[in-house]
Write a protein that binds this DNA or RNA. Sequence first.
DNA 1: CTCGAATCGTTCAAAGTGTGAATGATATGA
DNA 2: TCATATCATTCACACTTTGAACGATTCGAG
Lengths: 146, 146
Amino acid sequence: MNDVKLTSTLVFRLGTLGATVSERFSARLAAHGLKPKHVGLLAVLESGVVASQLDIAKLMNVAPSLVVSLADQLEEQGAVRRERDPHDRRRQVLTLTAEGRELLAVCTEAAVELDAELADVLTPKEAGMLRTALLALARHNGLPAD
Amino acid sequence: MNDVKLTSTLVFRLGTLGATVSERFSARLAAHGLKPKHVGLLAVLESGVVASQLDIAKLMNVAPSLVVSLADQLEEQGAVRRERDPHDRRRQVLTLTAEGRELLAVCTEAAVELDAELADVLTPKEAGMLRTALLALARHNGLPAD
DNA sequence: CTCGAATCGTTCAAAGTGTGAATGATATGA
DNA sequence: TCATATCATTCACACTTTGAACGATTCGAG
C-alpha cells in the first residue's frame, strides 16, 4: 500500500538535518556565550522592523516571558539597550548597541562558515538550487525571507 | 566587512524550516499518540539493521535510558515486542508487530502528505534538486540515506 | 474626567524533554 | 572462579519553554 521509507521524506530529512545543523551552529555560538535564540533576537533587532518585546516575541514565535530573559542576558553583555518607549511607557524598546552589532556579525560569520562546509559536498548547481528551494519554502511558511 | 544577513544562510533556513516542519509533523502524529522519536524508533526497527536497545540508542543519537521509555510506550501500544535475546540475556530485542508496521505506515503516509504540501510551492525541478541536495547532505552527515 | 477594560513587561511555578549516575542482571576472559 | 565489562532500568536532575498571576500604564465609553 505504501512502501516509501520515512527516512527518505522531505519531512524527515529537513527535521534531522535542521537539528544537526542547529546543534553545530549552537556549539560555535557557545564560545560567545550565546544560544541560537539570542542570535535570533539580535537579527530581529537588526532588521529594524520591530522593537518592543511583545512584537519580538510574536515574530520569534516564543512566549513574551522568554524574550524578557533573552533581553536580560543580552543587556548584561552590553549587546542591547533597553529603554521605555516615551510615547507608551509600558513598552520596552530594545536597540542594538555597536557591541551587539559586532556580536551579530561574528555569529553571522560563523553561520557563513558552516554554510560553506555544508555546501562543500554539493555541486555548485545543487547548492544554488538548494538555496532557491529553501528560500521559496521560507516565503510560504511565514519565515524571514530577505 | 560582512553584510550577509543571518536569515539568508543555509544554517538559519535549515534550522527554522526543520523546526517548523517537525512541529507540523509532530502535530499530526499526536492523533496517533506518538511523537517523532517514537516514529524514529519504529523506522529503525523496520530497517532491520539493529534491534538491541543500546544499538538503537546509538543509531538515534539519544541516551539509552530514553530508548527504554520510548520502547515502554510503544510496547504498551502493541507496536513492538520486547524479548530477551536468548544468546545474551542482557539484551532486549525489539521487533515490530503487525500493528507497529501498520502504525509506521500511517505515520509515513502523514509525512508523505506533508511532503506534498511543502513541494507544492516549488517547481518540479526545484523539488527534485531539493531532494538531491538533502540526500547528499544526509549522506555526509551520518544521517540515514536510503 | 473617570473608571473599567485592555496591553506590556515581569516574575514565578510548572510542564516537557532529555541526560547522566547508580544499580542489578548477565556475560566474558584471565 | 572471580574481576571486569556490558545491557537495561530507574531515578534525580538539568535545561528550555510556557502559562498564569501581577503591577504599571494606556485607552475608551460614558
